[in-house]
């Protein structure tokens, strides 16, 4: 397909593009502490974008998304820890491993529809955790500790590049022929097939993309924490948080994951430390309220009620 003409690119993409460029330009001057917070925020945004590929675009709710992140994290932990690979190589390999896993997993689980897919996806983090716990090479219950130093600027540019790629890809997919096929699948998969949409292949493609970016981001995450710990890496509530971000921001939209990441991460970083342990409850409540009363999330709802914004927000 042709590349979209510059003039035809929508305001949302311009907006995100400018936002990222400004961030990228300012980063070297941001003090270390705020920079690490920013990196954490961007990690969440990158995860939200990665989940958006499958759950946002097709409506297949994946509770097991954290597995791809864990695979990426462990890949980085192992390659950097034992063969002294540069962390960037670990990130790339992490994405690759998660992509391979997504292809294998998706070939099986994407045959299930709706709630059955969601249930199947719930099982994967548990399975993953139990496998890792018995593998001595991955540190078993101890996990892997790395000694790779503190380098927020490198983290920043890596995660920055991941998000930029995700946003570009999301835009490209949703604005072309593929976008129509995907919307058709989301609306009625059987009808889509009987009009020529190769639904299994398209879903697998999106699932693989979603794995790839979650894996790479998992690598960055392990890099920033200098290690991987099994209970944390396969933590289901992490999946829930990513789901919360795209639900709150707006499923399947271009801006939604970013807005959702900000909406979920910042409050939990600054306020919820006061109520330790209640964070997931609060997030859960917010998600329920949003799902019940504003199913389009922030972006979808603004688009619905403020027609002037429809052209601008995607």
């Amino acid at each position: 397909m042709k590349w979209p003409k510059l003039r035809a690119i929508g305001p949302s993409l311009w907006g995100i593009g400018v936002f990222l460029l400004v961030l990228g330009g300012l980063a070297p001057w941001i003090p270390r502490f705020p920079l690490t917070i920013l990196v954490n925020l961007l990690i969440f945004a990158a995860l939200a974008y990665s989940l958006n590929f499958i759950t946002g675009l097709t409506g297949y709710v994946n509770f097991g998304h954290v597995v791809f992140m864990a695979v990426g994290a462990y890949t980085l932990g192992y390659t950097v820890g034992t063969i002294r690979l540069h962390p960037l190589g670990g990130v790339a390999l992490g994405g690759l491993m998660a992509l391979v896993l997504a292809l294998g997993l998706g070939a099986v689980t994407l045959r299930f529809r709706g709630v059955y897919f969601a249930i199947a996806s719930l099982v994967t983090p548990l399975a993953g955790l139990n496998i890792v716990l018995v593998l001595p090479a991955l540190g078993g219950g101890q996990g892997i500790l790395l000694n790779i130093g503190f380098d927020p600027l490198s983290w920043f540019y890596t995660i920055w590049a991941i998000i930029a790629t995700e946003v570009g890809l999301t835009y490209w997919i949703t604005h072309g022929r593929l976008g129509y096929g995907i919307r058709a699948i989301k609306s009625d998969e059987d009808a889509a097939k009987s009009l020529g949409v190769n639904a299994p292949r398209l879903k697998l493609f999106l699932f693989a993309l979603s794995g790839l970016f979650a894996g790479a981001t998992g690598g960055v995450y392990a890099w920033t924490t200098s290690g991987v710990f099994p209970e944390a890496a396969f933590d289901l509530t992490f999946s829930l948080r990513m789901l919360a971000m795209i639900v709150i921001g707006g499923m399947g939209t271009l801006l939604g994951p970013l807005i959702g990441a900000i909406a979920v991460y910042l409050p939990s970083r600054f306020f919820l430390t006061i109520f330790i342990g209640t964070e997931s409850i609060i997030i859960g409540l917010v998600v329920i309220v949003i799902a019940l009363f504003v199913p389009g999330g922030i972006v979808g709802t603004l688009r619905k009620y403020v027609p002037e914004l429809r052209r601008i927000l995607e």
């Binding site: 919307r183 009987s194 020529g196």
Partner: peptide
């Protein structure tokens, strides 16, 4: 389909466009 299965969230034009792009015509441009 005997019991119609439109893509409910799309306009009629978009419904038809899906068939146009994925059917045997393979129209590539939305």
């Amino acid at each position: 389909h005997q019991i119609p299965k439109p893509f409910l969230g799309m306009t009629c034009r978009e419904n038809v466009a899906v068939a146009m792009m994925y059917g045997s015509r393979r129209e590539g441009e939305p």
